[in-house]
């Protein structure tokens, strides 16, 4: 559905995206992960035809974005970081305008408005003024605007930024439900978000692709060790010894919590799931197992790992660039 070959985008002397290659299959959700200023927004703008690429070939829904931008735009829905809404319009007027300008025929317009409003759960606010809506609601109206012409490809730039936890969960569920009918690319800088919604994740930093995989593999691969967190009611020294003997355990560190409880942090070897063995070891020794869960790495940690192990200078380059993008955004 989307095919990007050697995409490079320069603004004057600064290179925002360099030699990016990727493709997205129909119905897939691809997550774009990276810190601010990594080139996520720039890539998305190229995909939607807002910006022309400096170099490279970008094909969306079978059309080249440079040669046939109108065909691409007809098949793409784009939700920028700040939803592009006219604050003085009513929600239904906003949707009607978006529909007309995106080529929805007069006959279908009313039906499309009703459908998208239902999908994005804004049906009860159609007569409210956009400017009076809360941030979460505006985000949903923005999504409805992107969906109004039933596009094949949906490009969402940080769809959950600035929302409260409940709204984040709703938005994720909504995005997930849209996959299949639509091919979706979404950007985020929160790893769990990508893990929850995306089938595949690409990490970019300073305009370059750093890693690409499923969220689970990515987490596992990058960690080398998986970390388990256990809370046990029992003797600290004995338990530590017992846990260290479980097959696949690389290291154990303990932190007493009081009331006879101890929190253990257990390093597991890569690709090995020893949760059952761990649980059995604790229960058979007659101690209370209060908690056992894997601890994932945050994006920040993964990032540090990726950027520091491969090229330490790059991580530093990324910092001033992020402030530049923040200023122009």
């Amino acid at each position: 559905m989307i095919d990007v070959q050697g995409l490079t985008k320069r603004y004057g002397r600064t290179t925002a995206v360099e030699d990016l290659h990727f493709s997205v299959r129909k119905g897939e959700i691809l997550g774009f992960l990276g810190p601010n200023g990594a080139g996520k927004t720039t890539t998305m703008r190229v995909l939607t035809g807002f910006l022309p690429p400096t170099l490279g070939k970008v094909t969306v829904a079978g059309y080249d974005v440079m040669a046939e931008p109108l065909e691409v735009k007809r098949r793409t829905g784009y939700l920028p970081e700040t939803p592009p809404l006219y604050t003085d319009m009513r929600v239904d007027e906003m949707l009607a305008f978006a529909g007309r300008i995106k080529g929805v025929s007069r006959r279908e317009l009313r039906q499309r408005i009703a459908e998208t409003a239902e999908k994005t759960a804004i049906g009860d606010s159609l007569h409210k003024i956009v400017g009076h809506l809360s941030k979460g609601y505006r985000q949903r109206v923005g999504l409805a605007v992107a969906l109004i012409h039933n596009p094949d490809v949906l490009v969402l730039d940080e769809p959950t930024a600035g929302l409260d936890p409940k709204q984040i969960i709703e938005t994720r569920r909504l995005v997930k439900s849209l996959a299949g009918d639509h091919t979706i690319i979404l950007s985020t800088h929160i790893l769990p978000e990508a893990a929850h919604t995306c089938g595949r994740v690409m990490i970019i930093n300073a305009g370059k692709l750093v890693a690409e995989d499923t969220p689970e593999n990515l987490t596992a691969r990058l960690q080398g060790f998986e970390t388990m967190r256990l809370v046990i009611e029992g003797p600290e020294a004995l338990a530590r010894e017992r846990l260290a003997r479980v097959a696949g355990v690389g290291g154990v560190s303990a932190m007493p919590e009081g009331d006879g409880r101890v929190e253990f942090s257990v390093q597991m070897q890569k690709g090995r799931d020893s949760r059952k063995e761990l649980a059995r070891a604790v229960v058979e020794s007659g101690w209370g197992l209060l908690e056992l869960r894997p601890v994932g790495l945050s994006l920040e940690e993964i990032f540090l790992k990726l950027t520091t192990t491969e090229d330490p200078a790059e991580a530093e380059v990324a910092a001033p660039e992020s402030s530049r993008e923040a200023a122009t955004a």
Binding site: G49, F50, L70, T76, Y78, Y86, A98, I101, K102, V145
Partner: peptide, 14 residues
């Protein structure tokens, strides 16, 4: 200023 230019420029309008 409000970013609605992005809507116009990513719509199939010349």
């Amino acid at each position: 200023k409000t970013g609605t230019m992005e809507l116009l420029m990513t719509s199939p309008v010349t």
